[in-house]
Design a protein around this nucleic acid. Structure first.
Lengths: 344, 344
DNA sequence: AACCACGACTGAACCGATTTAGTGAATCCG
DNA sequence: CGGATTCACTAAATCGGTTCAGTCGTGGTT
């Protein structure tokens, strides 16, 4: 026989209702009674039946983490840190975390809707960095809760988000190079279907504008956050005559930066003496590279943890608060950037 | 007002019990009645309340996938394929999938037990490849359901598993090299805390024994499934005099094989002319390498999908069946293996 | 005709919490 | 002092299904 709330009530000589109040530490119970009930609970090792609880309270105590389906090709520390951050936050607040992929089936079968309607989750933590997600706007419209982690859909104000400020990141990275004396700076861009990449590029342009450095389209090299395209781009850049070539590169992420650096070094160029490179992310590889890669740090684990904690608190309290948070990245100076040759 | 089973019953002029039977397509309902009920359900767009359903039936319609905490350093296509396989299987059978990490906290706070007791899941899909998981034996003892994906704890017969046959893999890979004429074969081993690595090594020894080739401890190079240790091992091996050196390598996985191959090539050795290398996994990189890496293929996505499907069917049917399945890997011949120099 | 077996269906108990409306006692206040 | 308010607590309704024991009617068997 299962131990139920009634057993506790009987043993403590109170009503089941009182036990319930104690369990949900609601007001309206004297300290003495509360104490007594808790003692009995501990004594007979009572564990509330979570299914019954979820049934009568209507809350599932679970969230779903929505990952990009490309996670397979994108397998990268970014998402692993993100997953950890989310799991740990969920645990800390007594929630569980489902995992779903935002693939074709997710949209077509409207799995996201099922998650809510079939009461699997109370909210969605969305970690897909892509822009073309139609369903995102439907979530708040249907009255469901969701938060974007490091994504950007400011066109849907009802959607919560916690993320890094990518425009500012681009601006600061570029301005750092400008501050070192560089006047011709290339941008190794990220994929154009990701908001982060577009915004870092935007920050790059703003920095040039602020410093009144003309923008040169030929110094923008398209990329995909991966190392092969970066290497190819670097080879293209190095095929230009030395005097008509940028002296520094703002790479949209570390993998891009490191791919470029590798090519530069094997072409006989010294980093940072001949060319400065700055990345974004501060992955483990950035610290291990020779020279160490100067980069804009994002702590995705911490960010996700914070995001999910705030989100869960909001769900628990049924607070109507809107979570909108955008924080700056930290510049990590290592050895890959220096003033340009003429200026030293 | 929510549409409940009673509304359907009233409208269809049957009892709620009958509607429930139709819903769970249980026997004991005539075709006509079933038809009528289904029509009414469609008509008034009735969606059963999943929380109520789970409450009264006692089943959660969810499983948890337990991943190794090291997933962050192990971020590798293996686990990503595994995750996908599990999610897709769960979806196909109408289940949801929680994600948990088998980290210190998971053990200490006995989170696994919570998952069952608090009725978050009906079963566990365990994907940790490590041997030192104390809690594994407690699961069946507590009467809970779990399946191991590509792990080995045959010492706990109550635990289901579906996996590849690593001993046989080691045997076949080695025997393939022997068949090509190699008589001195090195093994670049995997981490000794993973069953797969130990068993591939065991298969390696069995193959030598079968061919009556003496086992030489000095030809075993420890490794960790990663490329740095493989590269170091290869450098050590190449420091031996040519005539006292293996002519072929059985590497415990592709990453190890490719790390070794890289070093061999940059030391001026030709693969497979001077040295043959065979790996395990058939990751994407194996096909792209120059020369293509001959390897033992594991299709982790398919394996996981199959495992989870069988497991869910078992849970749904409350069948006492025991799932024990161990399948062979497939040899994929590419360009990295050939007969040894003297034999061509 | 009497009896039984069986299939189709139903009424009502039940799962175990939460929540609401209400009770009784103590306290406050003019 | 008497009425109003507050506090601690409880009885009972409720959530929306599942499931079990039992009814009813039909058809087959002896």
């Amino acid at each position: 026989m299962r131990i139920t709330i009634k057993d506790v009530a009987k043993q403590a000589r109170v009503s089941p209702a009182t036990v319930s109040l104690v369990l949900n530490n609601a007001p309206g119970v004297s300290a003495m009674t509360r104490e007594k009930v808790l003692r009995v609970i501990a004594e007979i090792d009572y564990k509330p039946d979570a299914l019954a609880r979820r049934f009568s309270s209507g809350r599932t105590e679970a969230i779903a983490l929505i990952m990009p389906p490309e996670i397979i090709s994108l397998y990268d520390p970014y998402f692993m840190s993100l997953i950890r951050g989310a799991i740990e936050a969920a645990r800390d607040r007594g929630f569980r975390m489902l995992l779903e992929l935002a693939d074709a089936r997710f949209m077509e079968q409207r799995i996201w809707e099922d998650l809510f309607r079939k009461k699997y989750v109370d909210g969605l933590v969305i970690a897909t960095p892509f822009l073309d997600q139609e369903y995102l706007s439907e979530i708040p419209r249907a009255g469901f809760q969701a938060i974007l982690v490091n994504g950007d859909r400011s066109d849907i104000p009802e959607l919560d988000y916690v993320g890094y400020d990518d425009v500012r990141c681009g601006f600061e990275a570029t301005y750092y190079l400008i501050g070192l004396g560089h006047r011709r700076i290339a941008h190794f861009a990220g994929p154009t279907n990701q908001a982060s990449a577009l915004k870092r590029f935007e920050g790059f342009r703003q920095a040039l504008e602020r410093a009144r450095i003309p923008f040169r389209p030929e110094d923008i090299y398209p990329g995909d956050y991966m190392s092969e395209m970066a290497a190819a781009a670097m080879r293209r850049m190095l095929s230009r005559p030395t005097e008509d070539r940028p002296t520094a590169i703002f790479a949209a992420n570390d993998t891009t930066a490191l791919g470029a650096m590798e090519v530069a070094k094997s072409a006989g160029l010294a980093v940072p003496e001949h060319i400065s490179i700055i990345g974004v992310d501060d992955t483990g590889a950035a610290a291990l590279a020779q020279p160490g890669l100067t980069t804009m740090r994002q702590d995705i684990h911490a960010l996700t943890y914070r995001a999910v904690c705030r989100f869960l608190r909001k769900l628990e309290e049924r607070a109507p608060e809107r979570i909108h948070e955008r924080s700056p990245m930290t510049l990590i100076e290592r050895g890959s950037c220096a003033p340009p040759e003429g200026r030293r």
